[in-house]
Amino acid sequence: MKIAVLSGKGGTGKTTISASLAYSLRNSQYVDCDVEEPNGNIFLKASLTEREVVTVLNPVVNDDLCTGCGACQQACQFNAIVVINKKVMIFDNICHSCGACKIACPTGAISEVPREIGVIESNSSNTFMQGKLNLNEPLTVPVILQLKRKMNKHGNVIIDSAPGASCTVVSTIEDSDYCVLVTEPTPFGLHDLKIAIDLVKQLKLPFGVVINKAMDSDKSIQSFCKKENIDVLMELPYSKEIAQNYSKGILPVQYSKHYKDEFIKLLATIKERII
């Protein structure tokens, strides 16, 4: 089964939940798709020995064939091409690698070459994998798509998604078997949870909610979920102990048997929901 963990708002504990799930599930593969800020390995401490670069295709112009007509500039929706004094200038760092310029060129002067934009790192046993976007690169989706191609096809996979509801998140979660939405019991948490719910509903994915930092003083998430008939899968209490360990890079399942049992229970619940 493929479980994606996401949250509308950042800082709700998405990585805590996903890394704890991976830690509690034997032979599972943890895939960090938060490629701008992958930090699952702060907790899982895998030794990243394998490395594969992620490339995209960027256009290059053959000056012998180019007439400077400007069709490529016109075709490019991203302003990545300008033609000045009949000379084509291409800006790789805002190119979306869509290939429109190559299609538009009437003289066949444009070809495409690969360019590195990020890297996929994993450990030798392939139980941990993370994508990392190079600094100053705008396109996260190619890194995510490559991660997903390398992901275990069978067996259990836990996916840590980027926060929010952007196209990056869509690519990350779209073919998972189940989505875990992590939130916290504040009006902010509830508001952003609704955004995440809208997204998974649009994608028609089965999902449930994990309430992190749960407190008795606020049951707004619980009552919202009850009203909307949404599963609350688990509540992880608000605790200074968890926060302190988090600040040092230690997961609740790594220091407490109680929490380890809780996460094993959570996995069982998810399994039931998928079948």
């Binding site: 991203f78 302003n79 990545a80 300008v82 000045i84 800006f91 805002i94 705008p138």
Partner: peptide
């Protein structure tokens, strides 16, 4: 006009100046 472009504002603005 480039100020509101999604990307490549500097490139478009440069062309305006030229």
């Amino acid at each position: 006009k480039a100020a509101m472009e999604a990307g490549g504002a500097g490139i478009q603005a440069g062309q305006t100046i030229i």
